[in-house]
Structures are given as C-alpha cells and as structure tokens.
Amino acid sequence: MEFMVKNWFMLTLVGQDGPGIVAKLTGVLHAANCNLGEASMTRLGGNFTIMLMVEFEGVAESLEKTIFPVCDSLNLRCHVDLIEGQLHRHVEPDVRISVHGADRAGIVAEATKVLAEAGLNILNLESDVGGTSNAPIYIMHIEGVASKGIEPLKEALAVLDREVDVVTDLSEIEILRG
C-alpha cells in the first residue's frame, strides 16, 4: 500500500476575472480532499489573482493533475510550489505607511529602498492605480514591522517627501488585546 504524506503547497493562479472562479476552484480542491490554509485573492488590473495555501496528500505533480482541468476550463494559468505551512505564527505589524502621488515608474523601488534601509520589514503591500488614464495616480499601503523603531522610518519618509514627488503618511498600529 502506498503511504502518502500530507504536504503544504502554494497555488498561484492568474487569469481573466469572472464570477464563480473561487467557488469552482475550491470545490475541486475540496473534492480532492485538500485542506485550505491562508489565501489572498484580489483583482489586479482586471485580472483574477489568487495565492492559496493547500494541504494535499501527495506530490506537486498529483496536485497539478487534480487542478489543471478546472484551470483550463476557467482559462487560468496555474503554478504550484511545495512550501512550509507555517500556520499559527502570525507576525503583527506595528506600522502602516501610505504613499501616493502622480503615477510614474520607480515610486515603489524608491520608497521601499529607503524604508528597507530604515529597518522596515514589509508584511503586506497593496497598491492601486487610480485617477484617469491621462492623469493616473499611484496609491500604496504598506503594513510592516519597524525593526529599528519608528523614528528611522519617519526620517526616511521625510527624505522621500522632500526629494521624490510623493506624499507619505505613517501611523503606528497599536494593537488592543482584551
């Protein structure tokens, strides 16, 4: 009898967005005895994207065989990685930073470079392009851990405000535990 080990995989799926994708996909995974972990699904520029932790009894190739038919039917491209399923070890952010300005190439690189040097460990980053096609604006929210404290981050943002044409804001996240 073949003994199968349960493994955690990260599924990455990208494709044209449409209603019912998550339901169809997770239905197939459930039918294949998969257990889902943490997930992040978002629509980026009209595209459906999801990263999904899946616990599956078998190897990556078997999981791919299980989901490729539903991916094909939904016109999704799929990627499977074997990962360590580190659940129940959430790292909590202590700072939230927002950056916005007229959209142009280089905002993320410039902002995250100075923030990384000032000790920011990014846990979550979300960005949107708003405005109009003639005058697009870029809005980015970051949550992270200020490993060197808040002051170096404030100084880094002051430099960005001064030298790069963006508006930044920093607020500390105070977690209430009751």
């Binding site: 129940h88 070890r89 959430h90 909590e92 996240i173 105070e174 977690i175 209430l176 535990r177 009751g178």
Partner: peptide
C-alpha cells in the same frame, strides 16, 4: 477603526 486582538482568539488580530 483600530487593530484588536483578544485573549479568547489567539494568533489573530
């Protein structure tokens, strides 16, 4: 709006 955690809900805020 602010961030909360709870003694009765471990490892989540």
């Amino acid at each position: 709006v602010g961030r909360e955690g709870c003694l009765s809900v471990p490892n989540y805020t």
